[in-house]
Design a protein around this nucleic acid. Structure first.
Lengths: 251, 251
DNA sequence: TCGAATTTGTGCGTATGTATC
DNA sequence: GGATACATACGCACAAATTCG
């Protein structure tokens, strides 16, 4: 169906065209529903459905009482998910953000708890085994942009200087350096990437509107023998793209 | 807001609970709008919005004239996006799918064209330089599950036996082996992962409902000197998760 | 096979609450 | 505080597709 004959889709198409063409600049306001209805000679209801479509596409934002605003297309920032042929030191997140000309920082909170089943499986430890759980919220230029929840088996770190990830001599230096300090040499990371709608908690913490999507990276760090850390990293799809550099082996 | 006081969200929550609890089994039908409206003591319009929410979440499917059907939760299949410590031969896609106990196949169509700007940039060739474009639709157990669009510079392959990716002695063997046959030794792949709503074309080709999300992998194969192939790989988020295995180098 | 009942998708009108300006 | 505008909620009508006797 090249030409759309449904009213609300026709309206949505026209408005979308104006947005991507720049006739409606980022940050500007759309006409009100009543104005659009008169303009397109349709009912307000049709306009509302068209607005819903554009909102689902992430092109506009709506707030009750205010006319819809054209979202400024945030430039995608790139997260490099690879150490291949790079000499990376300290926190990968900070290095990535600084490389793109922004200020990076984070807050975190650690507590000991017991491993939930999915985490236990990923760490290959018994369910309910003691773990150190650390919740991070990462900020770029002061705005929260990413969050993650990390789990480390306490059987590895208990009683060592690195038990608390963000305290002590190795604070803020990343998992690899911390684990290295207690003789755990990380040689591999696995990352399982999925995408899903944002949860209420995440939408509040990351200041993104409900219904938008996030990518979830289930990252696990491995020594030659065992997994030593695993984390769920949550990134809004409209803020980040992920870059993987993959060595291709074989003749 | 722990308890939701909006009518349509209350209805959606109740129906969602019934689905995930298994009270509404996969493949079964929901009651009709009128029945649900009476059941919940709300208007049909509220039920409609609740249905919209569940559809956006991918929990149900609707067809005009038929009651909404509960989608059978497709088990996520895993795409391995790495050659690290694996000896992979031929098509990575087929190997992955077969390893998970399914039949894999694909259809494709090649044509010569000129490089659009984004592709030209990724291949580091002039815009409008001649390229071989190949569109793939991958099937698993006969169902379309993934699609991709590949571009190769014709300056590399013109006049060689591998010019047409799916014809000749190297048909179906994957980019690495084909390029190897003409002396292009691929040593690195880069993949940029993003997620966005499915387009109309994709939703028709992949048989997924409109409004659902896909992950897009922008993959580029590199020799030591230059990019030799780039592809946009489109995978629905509710069918696949991506697995990256990353060697961690250093000290 | 056919036709009638059912059900969804679309479209219209209106009212109320609430946030914005 | 008042005017504006969106979010939610109610009602109804019709076309198209499905379902089923």
């Amino acid at each position: 169906m090249p030409t759309e004959n449904l009213l609300y889709l026709r309206v949505a198409d026209d408005l979308r065209r104006q947005i991507v063409n720049g006739e409606l600049t980022a940050g500007s306001r759309l006409p009100s529903r009543a104005q659009l209805a008169e303009q397109f000679h349709v009912s307000e209801n049709v306009v509302r459905r068209a607005i819903d479509v554009l909102m689902a596409e992430g092109l506009i934002e709506t707030r009750t009482g205010a006319r819809p605003t054209v979202r400024q297309r945030p430039q995608l920032r790139r997260l490099t998910r690879s150490w291949y042929r790079e000499q990376r030191e300290g926190s990968p997140f900070r290095a990535d953000i600084k490389a793109q000309g922004h200020e990076a920082d984070w807050t975190c909170e650690s507590k000991t708890t017991t491993a939930p089943p999915t985490i236990a499986e990923r760490l290959r430890i018994a369910a309910d085994a003691p773990v150190m759980r650390t919740d991070y919220v990462f900020t770029s230029d002061g705005e929260p942009v990413m969050m993650s929840t990390s789990h480390e088996p306490l059987e590895l770190t208990r009683g060592t200087p690195v038990m608390l990830p963000e305290r002590g001599p190795y604070a803020g230096q990343g998992v690899r350096d911390r684990m290295s300090a207690i003789g755990q040499r990380i040689v591999t990371a696995t990352e399982v990437v999925t995408a899903r709608p944002v949860t209420q908690n995440e939408s509040a913490a990351l200041n993104v509107s409900a219904g938008t999507m996030v990518m979830v990276i289930q990252r696990t760090y491995w020594t030659d023998e065992r997994p030593v850390e695993t984390a769920n990293i949550v990134v809004p799809v409209d803020r980040y793209e992920l870059l993987y550099v993959i060595p291709v082996e074989g003749d």
